[in-house]
Design a protein around this nucleic acid. Structure first.
Lengths: 233, 233
DNA sequence: GCTTGACATGATAATGATTATCAATTACAT
DNA sequence: ATGTAATTGATAATCATTATCATGTCAAGC
């Protein structure tokens, strides 16, 4: 099956603009991508959808999924959701609707407006823009992030150099020194046990506090947290 | 000057949650970042703002600008705009307002709603979310992209291997062959002049058409465009 | 006044998310 | 059967961003 989509603007040597229109094919990969997107409970990223498609097409490439999500959204067959400043999501529902976005884990869900809110919008002054549409999005915290169990929110970059626990070697030393102690310790004490300079210990403590692995119940005294103990495991 | 901002959630070994609150300092870099963001006509990306800050602080690091934009927006001193799925923008205006976003070049401008549109929204069913706010965004094409001069939209990745014109070596050969011809050429003719296999010429023509460097005034005949001629220069 | 603690920086490495290249494959048109 | 065109997988490359680390700066405490 062939469908006509995607106009590429170009300009010939005489200066006239025209559009290149090219035939697209409905390949097996595209059919499966569309089907899995319809089945997906929610609005997946390319990577999340790739995991589903790969179950059905073992040889499919992540680049193919990325490429086709852009092509299919450009062709108007699916919606592209750009609600986070770093990662795109996709939606099989082409109808205008409202989303809610979690500020912590970046998850996106559908949400309905109260019926009396559903009106058409118009901009007062288009400022030269040609307006093609609008979107409304709610933001807040999802149920999971509200309970805040072990969930620390969206993906954060961990240093592969540090290993799976997200600890660099100096941080591990500091954490191990704290783990040995039954009471909150000062930086100097930690430095002694860890065999490190006190200034370096101070820096690592700052980083570990940000990761939630170290706490300061008394000023200038530190102790390992539950997360910190898990990170050492 | 010191301000108290940024609470980091942590949990001690007894299982009790608490917040770490840390002092932030208003460094010279932060003051200048805030000032330049206020002066910026529009909503810059980190990279765009870095260019302005660097004019006043020659030694400032891009990482410092990135880090501080996140810190300052986390502290509520500036707004973070996540309207494109790949790049964040920032705004000094903390008031709730509406944006318009160009689907071609990704530029973001402020826009005002018609007065009768300005009502408070409520979601019908929060689905367990704690809703903290909402946003409305218009989308369309900006004045520049509507006229479509030489502007090809947002940044696209060019291959450094190809050089500044964004042409790989085979593409350059094909384009040069086309530049020599006064009339539209078939693939086979191009293959002869370029000393390449016809099949490879075909692939390169496809890529060049997408880049807007080659056009097809007659089916199966190709000619170089004005952009294509510029790309060869 | 000195020491300790804490925040911040620049340089640079590293990462996540995405896109480009290319030879080969598949499919359509003539 | 041949020519043309779209698509793919593997992989390299890029963009946008974040982490690391040694050092600098500044505030607090003794």
């Amino acid at each position: 099956m062939i469908m006509i989509i995607n106009y590429i603007h170009a300009q010939n040597v005489d200066g006239y603009y025209y559009q290149v229109c090219n035939m697209l094919r409905m390949t097996q990969q595209r059919e499966i991508i569309l089907e899995e997107l319809k089945k997906f409970a929610g609005h997946p990223t390319a990577d999340e959808l790739f995991d589903e498609v790969k179950k059905r097409l073992s040889h499919v490439s992540l680049a193919t999924v990325y490429r086709n999500l852009e092509i299919l959204s450009g062709a108007g067959l699916i919606s592209k959701i750009e609600i986070s400043g770093r990662q795109k999501r996709f939606d099989s529902d082409l109808q205008q609707h409202t989303h809610v976005y979690c500020l912590s884990c970046h998850r996106v869900d559908n949400i309905e407006l109260q019926s009396k809110s559903s009106i058409d919008f118009k901009a007062k002054d288009h400022q030269g823009y040609r307006i093609d549409g609008y979107r409304i999005e709610f933001k807040g915290f999802c149920p999971d992030c509200l309970t805040k169990t072990d969930n620390k929110g969206g993906k954060s970059m961990g240093c592969k150099k540090c290993g799976t626990s997200g600890l660099s070697e100096p941080q591990r030393k500091v954490l191990e020194a704290l783990a040995k102690s039954k009471e909150p310790c000062a930086g100097k004490d930690i430095a002694l046990v860890a065999g490190m300079e006190a200034k370096q210990v101070s820096c690592q403590i700052t980083a570990l506090k940000k990761k939630g692995y170290v706490a300061s119940p008394i000023r200038c005294k530190y102790e390992i947290t539950r997360d910190g103990q898990k990170a050492l495991a």
